[in-house]
Nucleic acid binder design. Structure first.
Length: 704
DNA sequence: CTTGGCTGTATAC
DNA sequence: TGTATACAG
């Protein structure tokens, strides 16, 4: 439900940029011969020519719209070009479009805070940029105004259809007697025009934009003049814009709330809402929603543009409508395997490009059961800690499914095994990865600090952006932002072979231990799973089937990982030599800090030799897959015993780092979750059975 | 049985 | 925290 927020006192300049029929443009860029021709993108679907998910403007002129099927579109426009969405693993694969969206974001984020609102939309907060422009090169001082800016639509500006529209727009943009707010809007319009031109030049995509004083109005405006145009909303025209606007057109009112306004209150336009007092609306819809409605009727919305260039979750799903419903555990497993492969791939890519890891895996499904009674029941969502590696994710996902199915079927006596009809069907499954967080941004700062004090910049606020800048890992990748804000310094990691060797050997020790424990107690795979991952419960596992082992309790006990467990001794690696080498080269000033870091490895187990095999593998796989090398470089980042930190040392660190370390050291507080997750992630990564980041032929198995 | 398919965000309890 | 639901493109 919408939440009311007070509008900030200062006028802001907000833009909403919306790509024009984005999927179609992506396909037209890939197949330039389609440019200018009526085109639509259809989802892989044999039935009636597939469902249209994007329609180009040439096709719209023939009356083709997004709710048609391929056949209908052909009827309305026989010469239409229908392009199929890419398919991978027998399901639609939108990565082409996601990556294209990232290209656009990387451009649009250059001039101010940028929020990626969907695959093809962003919000920009251009307040600072507009103020700067007004101070330095105000529009009124320009002798030539950009053509793209002159094509702006200024809401409420007279003579829009007159013969000399551009002259009017130029005058509005450059008025010296305009009030401050409107001058800032004019600057915003110039900036957005420039950004849109850059998008076109660098990506070949056109987009439309709205420029206003808040997100709500900017979003409304961007849709008013499409394609490839922009619309400005001065304060003075807000009332006129809203009063005749159908409520359903407002974001958040396209669903039940909007319907309720129409049906219960007879409110058809946003202007109609003005007839209701705030109290009345609160009484009808609750305090939050009531206030929100009262505000939006007046064009008020204090919602901030969030600095977020990357998605908060990744998901992969598929539906199985009607007769295609999945009716056996085997078929469910098959599709879960496909979905997990895709998800794992995307998570790996997210890690490589953005240095983020996801913590939670969630399974959603829709089901029906023929055995009557409570067939209305919904299939419950289930989640568990996420383990990287397709094989592990597949195992976890299937266990989640079985747990959900058991609950869904309840007391119904139906079989869940075998290949015969079981009395139930699955009509949709999806898995998603959430709680995605950057790995140790604070430690990033620390590394920055030690890798070059002169380059250190104090900037722990914008985690994500710094993070991206910290790690220009795949320069050619389209979904990273390392090129952003390139004025910021970047770290130089010196990839030391020895680091890779030693850290890998540390992992191998853990592995050996794990295997031993497994052999010792093979009667209960679940418990083994749970214990061999550092005394905490990890993977959901119902496969062993016994009552004791099938409990899905992983969410309950917080991870019982302690820094003095065998964990850090066996997993955390010995970097003494490298560290000393590094320290020797950097040991100028900073004595006490460096002493601390120099001495911190004394408890680590020595590097033994039996792991050469793994070393080879890791080298091979890191050169092939890329991820492992990354992590090995980074591993030194968490190679500390937190409780060994001498408090006096902390004072010497920059404030941001102090903050982070104090959080770790705080008594009675578990180590930073991100550290635990990173450990987790790294250990999973070293599992030779994992298919993660390795194509089959390159897998460790084939290398040994 | 389903109600367009897939992906993503936000909010409430 | 995990789960359910609504909404959007």
């Amino acid at each position: 439900m919408p939440v009311a927020r007070p509008e900030s006192a200062d006028a802001r300049i907000i833009a909403h940029v919306d790509m024009d029929c984005f999927y179609v443009q992506v396909e037209q860029r890939r197949q330039p011969e389609l440019r200018g021709l009526p085109t639509a993108v259809v989802q892989y679907n044999e039935w009636k020519g597939g469902a249209l998910i994007a329609v180009g403007y040439e096709a719209r002129n023939f009356g083709v719209n997004r709710h048609m099927r391929g056949h209908e579109a052909k009827e309305a426009c026989p010469q239409i070009n229908l392009v199929q969405v890419p398919v991978a693993r027998d399901k639609a694969d939108l990565s082409t479009y996601r990556n294209a969206g990232s290209e656009v974001v990387s451009i649009l984020s250059r001039k101010g805070r940028c929020e990626r609102a969907s695959i093809d939309e962003v919000y920009l907060d251009l307040t600072d940029a507009a103020k700067a422009m007004l101070a330095e090169t105000p529009p009124e001082s320009l002798e030539a105004v950009d053509e793209e800016a002159l094509k702006s639509h200024i809401l409420g500006l007279q003579n829009e259809n007159g013969s000399d529209t551009k002259a009017n727009v130029r005058e509005w943009l450059c008025r010296s007697d305009a009030d401050h707010c409107e001058k800032l809007l004019a600057c915003g319009a110039l900036i957005v025009a420039e950004l849109r031109m850059q998008v076109l030049k660098e990506t070949e995509f056109t987009c439309s934009a709205g420029v206003a004083h808040n997100k709500m109005l900017a979003k409304l405006a961007s849709a008013l003049n499409k394609p490839a145009q922009q619309t400005v909303v001065p304060f003075s025209s807000v009332k006129g814009l809203l009063e005749s606007l159908p409520v359903k057109k407002m974001k958040q009112l396209g669903g039940k709330l909007g319907t309720s306004l129409q049906n219960e209150l007879g409110v058809n336009t946003v202007g109609d809402l003005l007839n209701f007092s705030e109290d009345k609306l609160q009484e009808l819809y609750g305090v939050n929603t009531g206030t929100w409605l009262w505000n939006i009727a007046r064009g008020i919305s204090g919602e901030e543009v969030q600095a977020r260039l990357l998605p908060k979750s990744h998901g992969s799903g598929k539906s199985f409508p009607g007769p295609r419903a999945l009716k056996t555990a085997d078929s469910v497993k098959h599709w879960l395997n496909q979905l997990c492969e895709e998800l794992n791939e995307r998570l790996c890519s997210d890690f490589e490009k953005n240095r983020r890891i996801a913590r939670t895996l969630t399974l959603h499904a829709s089901a029906f059961k023929s055995s009557s009674s409570d067939s209305f029941k919904k299939f419950p969502s289930k989640s568990c800690p996420l383990r990287y590696g397709a094989a592990k994710m597949q195992e976890d996902a299937f266990n989640l499914f079985q747990a959900g199915l058991r609950e869904y079927l309840g007391s119904c006596v139906v079989r869940t095994q075998g290949t015969r009809y079981n009395g139930w069907g699955i009509t949709a499954i999806s898995i998603s990865a959430s709680k995605i967080m950057p790995i140790l941004s604070g430690t990033c700062s620390i590394m920055k600090y030690f890798h070059g004090q002169d380059k250190y910049v104090s900037s722990s606020k914008q985690d994500e952006i710094n993070f991206i800048q910290d790690a220009p890992l795949s320069p050619s990748g389209s979904e990273n932002y390392s090129e952003l804000n390139s004025t910021e310094p970047q770290i130089e990691f010196s990839a030391e072979e020895a680091t890779i060797r030693d850290s890998v050997s540390g992992f191998n020790q853990q592995e050996v231990k794990t295997n031993t424990r497994k052999e010792q107690n093979s009667s209960c795979a679940t418990l083994n799973e749970a214990t061999d991952s550092f005394t905490r419960e990890t993977s959901p596992s119902l496969s062993s089937g016994t009552a004791n082992c099938s409990v899905l309790n992983w969410s309950k006990p917080p991870r019982e990982v302690h820094w003095d467990d065998s964990l850090d001794k066996s997993v955390i690696v010995n970097l003494k030599q490298q560290e000393q080498k590094r320290n020797a080269s950097k040991d100028k000033g900073k004595s006490s800090i460096l002493n601390f870091f120099k001495n911190r490895n004394t408890l680590c187990s020595p590097c033994t030799q039996e792991h050469n095999e793994t070393i080879q593998n890791a080298k091979a796989s890191s050169s092939l897959g890329g991820c492992c090398a990354e992590l090995n470089q980074r591993r030194e980042a968490w190679d500390y015993r937190i409780e060994d930190i001498d408090p006096s040392v902390i004072d010497e660190l920059p404030p941001e780092i102090q903050k982070e370390i104090r959080a770790w050291v705080r008594p009675n507080k578990r180590p930073n979750q991100r550290i635990l997750m990173l450990l987790d992630f790294l250990v999973d990564l070293e599992d030779p059975w994992s298919t993660r980041c390795m194509k089959p032929k390159e897998s460790i198995l084939s290398l040994t």
